[in-house]
Design a protein around this nucleic acid. Structure first.
Lengths: 199, 199
DNA sequence: TTCAGTTTATGACCTTGATCATAAAGAAAA
DNA sequence: TTTTCTTTATGATCAAGGTCATAAACTGAA
C-alpha cells in the first residue's frame, strides 16, 4: 500500500469501475500499479467450460497485480470489480521509481509478495490433498486471522463471502460448499446466523 | 541467487545433506537463507493420511525458503533433500543486511518471488479447474520454458521428473499420471523414449 | 408490492479419478 | 550376477464430489 500523498506526487489517477467491469484480463501486458481506494476487486481465472477460480479478493487499501511489474510477465489472471469501485492507477515506470526512491516501500512490497506466496502455498496444498470440509475451515481461519478487526475483540468472525465465492476460492462447487458448511455447523466448527457464516 | 564471494563475505557456510534428509519442517521458525550449491531439494506438504504435495524443486544456484524471512512467518512446508546435496546457509540477519546493502540483489529477490507467485497462481488454478491431461501439459510446458538449456536449441525437452513427482506436483495419483501421459503420447502431445517424457 | 435477480437449499444420479492388487522392467546395491 | 528397490504399467472396483433439476428465501429495484 502506497500512501495518498506519494500516490498524488507520482501523479496517480483515481479511476471508477462499475460492478462486473473488467480492469484487465489474463494475457494482457501490465502497464499500471493498482491500489483499491473503495469497493472490491477480485482476480480470477476461468477454464474452458467456464468454471471460475478466484485468486484473491482485494478491498480498500490493498494493491493487486504488481507481481508482473517486478518480473516482466503477462497477467496470469483477470481482474474484475465485485462492487462499484474507485481504484488508483499508477503507470509502471512511475511505480518502479517510487520503489527505487523509497527502500522502505520496496521492502513492504517484498513482504506483501511473501505473504501472498504463503496464502497460495497453503491453498494449493489444501486443494490438492484435503477434503472439502478441511479446505473450507482453512480458508475461513485464514480470512479470520487476516481480516479480523483487532478492535472487534469478539472471538466470532463474520465471513463476508457468499457460498459461491467460497467455492470459487477453494476449487469446489456451490452445492458442495453448502453441504459442507452445514456439516461443519452440526459439528460445532462454525455458526450460521441469517445465512451468514461465523467462525 | 547470491554470488559466491558475497556469500563468503557474509560468512555463509556450506552444509551437507544426505538424500532423504530434512532441512526444516512445516511450522519451524526460519533462521537461515538457503541456496543450493549442488544436489536437489524439494519443498513439500503432507496431509493427514500421507499424501504429498510438492511445492517446488530447487537445484544448483536456486534459493528456497526465503519468503518467511521477508514477512516473518513460520515455514508453510518442509524442505527435504531429493539427492545428496550441499547447501549454503546464511543466517537471517546477515541475509537481510546483504539485501539492505545491495538494492540490486533485493530487487532480484522481489522478482524471484513474483515469478514463484506466477507459478503458484498457475498451478492452483490448474489444479482446481482443469483435468489431468491439461494439468500435466501445463506443468511440462512450464518446466520446459524455465529449464530449457538455451544452448540446447532442440525443440524437444527431456523431463527429469518421475511419474510420482509429476503426480505430487499436480495433485494427482501416479496411476492417473501414467495413464494420462500415455494418452498424451497417443495424441502426439509428447514423446516417451526409454520411459522418459519428452516435450 | 410486484417482479427480477441472487443466494441458499436439497434430492437423485453420474462420472472421474482414487484405490487396490498385482506384475514386469530397470536401476542400484550387495 | 543375484538381490533389492524403484519406477512404470494395467485392470477392476469404488466413492467422493460434480452435475442436474427444482425450489424457497431473501434482496433490491421498478
Amino acid at each position: 500500500m502506497i500512501s495518498k500523498d506519494i500516490l498524488l506526487e507520482a501523479e496517480a489517477v483515481l479511476k471508477e469501475y462499475k460492478r462486473g467491469e473488467q480492469l484487465f484480463k489474463e494475457g494482457d501486458t501490465p502497464r499500471y500499479y493498482y491500489q483499491v481506494y473503495s469497493g472490491e476487486i477480485k482476480m480470477n481465472n476461468h477454464n474452458d467450460d467456464g468454471k471460475e477460480y478466484i485468486q484473491g479478493i482485494f478491498d480498500s487499501g490493498k494493491s493487486f497485480g504488481e507481481p508482473p511489474l517486478f518480473a516482466d510477465f503477462k497477467y496470469p489472471a483477470n481482474a474484475e470489480a465485485i462492487t462499484d469501485a474507485r481504484i488508483w492507477l499508477l503507470p509502471k515506470d512511475k511505480f518502479l521509481k517510487v520503489l527505487e526512491k523509497n527502500p522502505l516501500i520496496h521492502h513492504k512490497f517484498t513482504s506483501t509478495l511473501a505473504l501472498r506466496l504463503y496464502y497460495k502455498a497453503m491453498m494449493v496444498s489444501e486443494i490438492s490433498t484435503q477434503e472439502p470440509e478441511h479446505r473450507i475451515l482453512r480458508i475461513l481461519d485464514y480470512f479470520k486471522k487476516n481480516n479480523q478487526n483487532t478492535t472487534t475483540a469478539s472471538s466470532l468472525y463474520k465471513i463476508e463471502l457468499t457460498r459461491q465465492q467460497l467455492a470459487d476460492l477453494t476449487g469446489l462447487r456451490v452445492e458442495t460448499v453448502i453441504r459442507a458448511v452445514k456439516k461443519l455447523e452440526q459439528k460445532g466448527e462454525l455458526l450460521i446466523k441469517d445465512r451468514k457464516i461465523y467462525r
